[in-house]
Amino acid sequence: MKEKKEKRHVSYAKWGLIFIAPFFIAYIIFSLAPQIITIYNAFFENYRSGLTIVGPNFVGLRNFVSLFTPDANGTIDILKYTGNTLLMWVEGAIPQIVIALLLAIFFTSYRLKIKGQGFFKAVIYMPNMIMASAFSMLFFTLFSNVGPVNQVIQAMGWADATIDFFSMTVTVRGMIALMNFLMWFGNTTILLMAGIMGIDQSMFEAANIDGANSLQTFFRVTLPLLKPILVYTIITAMIGGLQMFDVPQVLTNGFGVPNRTTMTLVMYLNNFLSGKNYGMSGAVSVILFIVTGILSLITFRSLRTQSEEA
């Protein structure tokens, strides 16, 4: 019997490593390394002033200190912008979740038997696919001083003069929230529908036989069973909301009008970045990273405890 000592084993393990290598190489080059550089930069003074480049000089935590130092009017920009971001997110997210939950229940109800579901789903999901900057530009033109909305208001005689929607915090924030709502409630509806359809139908039948009415069934059966996917949806929406950029950027032309009350965290970051102030943009990124990190940890924890319970 011939014996070849050199190769005694058949193994495919190396192929697994080869196949996942491109992902990790690309991740390291295009994400991880830039992230590290971002964080590293946060501790340096590095910006452009006219044509001269200042830095990089190590400044320790000075960038962070200046982020949290109140300006002449006593406002701390980063807190204001974080507040703006969260507030506008909440204004859009509350109707988004409530309407999505309602629609999901309507669509999955075997008693209501809603017709034309395919059409409605296609319609409510469509804004999600639309280019946010174009959608925002469209809103800008519609609500501008000479736009159709003002034309209608005047034609109807609802107001004496032109309403400048972009001079009032409440209307600009309202438009941003409305756009975010329109762009995301369809997506949430579809996710929640999948969640409801994942619940064993016999649960609803049992509740029905036990004498629960529709409202009781909803609050006692559907909602508790839907909690995991609801929590997941809310938290991922919140992480997405923190990254709000395209809509307010284009709508307000990057200024966060009026008076920076619609300026978001990422718009702030963008301002530093387009000004090539890598020190300050790094510091803002670190804040963004920490905030999302905390939210993600909460997501993972809530998902884990739920999977353990199950």
Partner: peptide
């Protein structure tokens, strides 16, 4: 590890890398 790593990085906002990426 690879699997969980990919899941974990899913939630890191891409903007966090932007500053360093633009600089490079």
């Amino acid at each position: 590890f690879a699997y969980w790593f990919i899941l974990a990085i899913m939630v890191i906002p891409s903007q966090v890398a932007a500053s360093g990426f633009v600089q490079i």
